[in-house]
């Protein structure tokens, strides 16, 4: 794919890297988001993953949800710290348990 792009646009490797690379500030933001969640929760990364997985499992018992799209964030709301999780519901018509995976 990269080769094709390079051939199509006649780019050098470096130019292609620059074109496909994220802005460094967005990389910084993404990394910070994760680090701050861990810092705020004072939870080890593997524990966090475990919790994320368990929450997904519980929700998927009741509705068909995307197993890929899940946002997980610890946010500050004035004086409160809240856990916000968004999980995409794939099929609203079928609220019966998804076939076990």
């Amino acid at each position: 794919m990269r080769e094709l792009l390079r051939w199509l646009f006649n780019l050098t490797g470096k130019e292609l890297d620059q074109a496909t690379e994220m802005l460094s500030k967005d990389t910084a933001k993404q990394r910070l988001k994760l680090v701050l969640i861990q810092d705020r929760l004072e939870l080890a990364p593997e524990k966090l993953e475990e919790m994320k997985k368990e929450i997904w499992e519980v929700v998927s018992k009741y509705m068909v949800v995307d197993d890929d799209f899940m946002e997980f964030e610890v946010r500050r709301l004035d004086d409160l710290t809240v856990l916000v999780s968004n999980i995409e519901v794939k099929d609203l018509s079928d609220l019966t348990p998804a076939p076990s995976t």
Partner: peptide, 17 residues
């Protein structure tokens, strides 16, 4: 900031709230 190599006010604000 203009080049996208430094977080701006909005970026920092959204992280630290």
């Amino acid at each position: 900031v203009r080049r996208g190599d430094m977080m701006d006010q909005k970026d920092v604000e959204s992280l630290l709230a």
